[in-house]
């Protein structure tokens, strides 16, 4: 059986992300072989200008439409554009993405305002999910991003998030006042 074709068929039928290990087990190949075949498939689709793409989300693969066809598809299916994320929602989502798992209190400490409604909205849209409880008094919920978050932001994994400035900004916010220790650690 052609592995690439099998992967294409599985991903088409699934719709949802499918773990590479599962595909490898079903096809009777090693994980490495399945990954190579998936990579080749994704490359072929891109090179030949196909209308669908294979994207990688952490350890899973998912089939989706080519991004350049989004407008045509939405017009044909009379589907509206995806709702925009407000700057506030993007802030909350970013704090969760970079510091997950985090509590609501942490998000509010960073932003200085209530985040409960925004968190609820992000959960409804499947971008954030509860992933457990912090083992302190009150056992507050911990939040993390979902696979849908990665796909929505065109990321393969969280490691692809744009790096945060490694150095804390001077407390008064002015870069001119920064002092460097050992030449590497601006404070």
């Amino acid at each position: 059986m052609e592995i690439k074709a099998a992967i294409e068929g599985i991903l088409f039928a699934s719709g949802d992300p499918v773990d590479v290990s599962r595909i490898a087990a079903v096809l009777g190949v090693t994980r490495g072989e399945a990954e190579s075949a998936a990579l080749e498939l994704a490359h072929d689709m891109r090179q030949s200008g196909r209308g669908v793409r294979v994207v990688r989300i952490e350890n899973a693969l998912q089939m989706c439409s080519a991004p350049e066809l989004a407008d045509v598809i939405r017009t044909t299916l009379e589907s509206g554009k995806p709702p925009k994320l407000s700057p506030q929602a993007l802030e909350v989502l970013s704090v969760v993405a970079y510091f997950q798992p985090v509590t609501r209190a942490y998000i509010e400490q960073v932003r200085g305002v209530d985040a409960s409604n925004t968190l609820r909205m992000l959960q409804t849209r499947g971008l954030v999910e509860r992933c457990g409880h912090l083992n302190v008094v009150g056992r507050p919920s911990l939040y993390a991003t979902t696979d849908a978050f990665l796909r929505t932001f065109a990321l393969e994994s969280l490691s692809e998030l744009p790096p945060l400035a490694g150095s804390p900004v001077a407390p008064d916010g002015s870069a001119d006042d920064q002092i460097t220790i050992d030449g590497d650690f601006p404070v």
């Binding site: 719709g15 994207v55 080519a66 991004p67 989004a70 598809i73 554009k81 796909r151 065109a154 990321l155």
Partner: peptide, 8 residues
């Protein structure tokens, strides 16, 4: 960019 990736 990611909003253009439509799934089924």
């Amino acid at each position: 960019e990611g909003a253009g990736l439509i799934t089924k």
